[in-house]
């Protein structure tokens, strides 16, 4: 398939679906709702934002209080395509799909969301900071979940893969019959859990007394930008909120850097120091997610580093934690 045919495919999708895709804007690549196929950025550069807010809205109403009951509020969305999702962001979406496997709100929305992946990876500057060493060649598509995947070849042409029934239906509805099927083979490759997941967990687990956390706490502003921009940060608050229509129970994005995140009755906070919050953020990604799913809790997109006002670098910190001399 050449670029023109690919643009036709994108245009067909735009005619029938809400489409979010990476576009170039003011020198940055940013994911936005698009109107024209020509807007799509095909370079594979890492967008500064993620698809997270489509899958997991920053605020979502779960219940309305009606009379004396909490009435479940499941909202339907228009069928939506997440287009041009790079492999790291597909991994992040695969993680969310597993974490929210039993969540009615997520699953309801997810039914109407299609993922169309695209090869590319990370822009050159960020390559050296990669946390994981993921090569596109290593059967990577068998261990991420996607509906359609587009591989851009060196000659500028594209080949297509389907990764689900939804994907096949989508392709065929656009009269595309030339594609290869890829069967999802589970999160963990046949050869076992990615050694980098194991290594990073060893580096982070039980490192709470490591000097690194105190050092980072001297510069970290606890602004929470890293959580907002992270495709795998999914923690939330659930709260009753008064609106003009009455009481709603809603959930909102949270961040472990926020002051009340761990506050219990009486005001005690388990995370009462910034060093503890930093350690907590890292244990979520490098300990808890691997413990539960043997999967990436961080996909090494490096967005957290890119937005951090004080330049905290997750890859460098993992190196510091794993170097023997620094271990106390």
């Amino acid at each position: 398939m050449n670029q023109k045919e690919m643009n036709n495919f994108a245009a067909k999708l735009l005619a029938n679906y809400l489409v979010y895709a990476p576009i170039k804007k003011a020198k940055e690549v940013i994911i936005e709702k698009i109107n024209l196929a020509g807007q799509i950025d095909w370079t594979g550069a890492m967008p500064i934002n993620t698809f997270k807010r489509v899958l997991l809205p920053p605020r979502e109403v779960m219940f309305n209080v009606e009379g004396q009951e909490y009435k479940e509020r499941l909202t339907s969305i228009r069928e939506t395509i997440l287009f041009g999702v790079n492999i790291l962001d597909l991994q992040a979406i695969t993680l969310l799909d597993h974490v929210f496997e039993k969540d009615v709100y997520y699953q309801k929305r997810r039914q109407d969301i299609f993922t169309v992946g695209l090869t590319g990876g990370i822009e050159n500057d960020f390559r050296k900071y990669r946390v994981f060493h993921q090569a596109y060649e290593e059967n990577v598509l068998e261990h991420v979940m996607f509906d359609v995947f587009i591989e851009k070849q060196k000659n500028g042409n594209f080949i297509l893969f389907s990764g689900s029934e939804k994907g096949r239906t989508l392709l065929e509805s656009c009269n595309i019959v030339e594609y290869e099927n890829i069967e999802f083979a589970g999160l963990v490759p046949e050869k076992g859990v990615d050694n980098k997941i194991v290594q990073n967990r060893l580096a982070v687990e039980n490192s709470e007394k490591h000097n690194l956390w105190k050092e980072l706490a001297q510069t970290c502003l606890a602004c929470g930008k890293c959580s907002i921009v992270c495709p795998t940060c999914f923690c939330f608050d659930e709260q009753d909120e008064a609106t003009l229509e009455g009481v709603e129970k809603a959930r909102r994005w949270s961040s472990c850097f926020y002051s009340d995140f761990s506050k219990t009755a009486g005001g005690k906070k388990d995370l009462d120091a910034l060093a503890k919050k930093l350690y907590f953020w890292y244990t979520h990604k490098f300990v808890r997610v691997p413990e539960e799913l043997s999967y990436y809790g961080c996909v090494s997109c490096m967005r957290c580093y890119k937005v951090c006002p004080v330049g905290i670098n997750v890859a460098r910190n993992l190196q510091a934690l794993s170097s023997k001399e620094s271990r106390k």
């Binding site: 687990e205 923690c235 949270s254 979520h284 808890r288």
Partner: peptide, 8 residues
């Protein structure tokens, strides 16, 4: 899921 109560 929500992470508030996580320990290690």
């Amino acid at each position: 899921v929500c992470q508030h109560c996580a320990v290690g």
